[in-house]
């Protein structure tokens, strides 16, 4: 009996097991793969069917990973449900009784989320990339940079982690999804007109969703300036750490 004790690897294994024993996990990951690959095929096929379509790495990357924008929203909700589902069902009491320090549970969920979701998004993005490149018309070549591929696979997982943090902060599924949608979609749309013109672009490109998109974009001289890929990764990482840390503090201090 003395061999039994709580350790972080064990909590992470437990959370991984909990995640993969839910049907909804596989349903969500399947849907995201279908959306990623399906939109990449449909959009590239449409664009390149037209004669004289522009062929560039930037355009190809944007067309191939357009579906990732949708996946970012879906996985965000997935991250939220990983923890608000436990508050809703009351399971969180059993979980915290087993791991009364609580914070390791949140970190273990984050680890489990990355280990389960990232291989799935990466696989879907690789298939999307292969399909996109195969649909290119004959002529000058174009390709998707490897860093955009990994960015496209990682960005939705990072937003899922932000969702997990918001879920730990807000606890109620509907409220957490509302907060997530407001932060991701409404906030940037409001900031743009609300801020002085010379400031707006500088601020808006640092919001989570814009920084996440910059991780899988190739600069095309678009009028809306995106963050450089390296800065984008750091910005998204900062948002992720900040949200999870806030969630961890809340879990410690508020009774379930």
């Amino acid at each position: 009996m003395n061999a039994y004790r709580v350790s972080f690897p064990r909590v992470a294994r437990a959370e991984g097991g909990k995640l993969i024993t839910l049907r909804s996990t596989w349903a969500v990951l399947s849907v995201t793969a279908v959306i990623t690959v399906g939109l990449a095929v449909a959009i590239n096929a449409n664009v390149y069917r037209r004669p004289g379509a522009e062929v560039s790495s930037g355009a190809l990357t944007a067309q191939t990973f357009l579906g990732v924008d949708v996946v970012c929203l879906i996985l965000g909700v997935f991250g939220i449900l990983m923890i608000t589902g436990e508050f809703g069902s009351g399971l969180i009491r059993a979980t915290f009784a087993a791991v009364p320090r609580r914070v390791p549970v949140l970190l273990a969920k984050a680890v489990a989320l990355v280990l389960v979701a990232f291989p799935a998004t990466l696989a879907a993005c690789i298939v999307a990339m292969i399909a996109g490149e195969a649909l290119l018309p004959a002529g000058p070549p174009a390709d998707i940079p490897v860093r955009a591929l990994f960015g496209a696979a990682a960005a939705p997982v990072a937003l899922a982690l932000i969702g997990l943090g918001i879920g730990a902060l807000v606890r109620h599924t509907a409220a957490a999804i509302t907060v997530y949608v407001l932060t991701m979609l409404v906030l940037p749309a409001i900031l743009q007109p609300a801020l002085p013109e010379d400031l707006a672009d500088d601020v808006v490109r640092y919001v989570p969703i814009a920084a996440a998109q910059a991780m899988y974009a190739v600069d095309t001289g678009n009028p809306f300036p995106m963050l450089a890929p390296g800065t984008a990764v750091l910005t998204v990482a900062a948002w992720t750490v900040l949200t999870l840390a806030a969630g961890a503090v809340m879990l410690r201090h508020r009774d379930p």
Binding site: A3, Y4, S89
Partner: peptide, 22 residues
Amino acid sequence: GRAVHRGRTARQHLLGLARTHG
């Protein structure tokens, strides 16, 4: 009150708790 996720089986639920302690 209930403290179980409706989508997991009884065994999976208990395994989820058991694994935290080995």
